[in-house]
Design a protein around this nucleic acid. Sequence first.
DNA 1: GTAATGATCTCT
DNA 2: GAGATCATTACC
Length: 191
Amino acid sequence: MPPLNRAFYARPTVDVARDLLGKILRHGRASARIVEVEAYLGENDAAAHCASGLTRRTRVIFGRPGHAYVYLIYGMHYCLNIVAEPEGVAGCVLIRAVEPLAGIELPANGPGKLTRALGITLEHYGSDLTRGPLTIHPARRELEIGISPRIGIRKAVDLPLRFFIRGNRFVSKSTARAAAHNQDLARDVIR
DNA sequence: GTAATGATCTCT
DNA sequence: GAGATCATTACC
């Protein structure tokens, strides 16, 4: 199965985030199903790294869609993001949790854990997801999507920009907690 | 130059 | 509720 093409990523960040759920993330022999993501918009989103404009660290977010934005947080955890929106428009999707399918021995239910489990580091910064070594592949499957506010941030905490697969046990613990508080939001179903 | 600050996780 | 631990940012 070929990787998702550029057009998939060149859409509004929220659409890309929701559609990434259930897709297969591959790195070398390791593969995992994406079960939890968060959308980070450009301007108007105070919680996003790219909110304060174009810097050296955030330049890929403004670049071509379908590339990886990797950064180090708290001095010890790498986080994997997928660049969305057409070139020139800021927007990215944070992969928060994946379900290990093959070639993975470590737990991957959290942004810091999944990068360690998949061997993702800063050298994947700006990597093209349509070419590899890091790729995302389609997977047709019916999903029940839950929506909740993002967590682990200080600003714009109330925006419902987190998407996850309901009932999947690999969704991170803190998401489940946030969802319990927002049952009216977590009721969306797509196919 | 230098200093403060996190899209976190684990253990106590 | 603290600690691990460092790239990026903002401000001298």
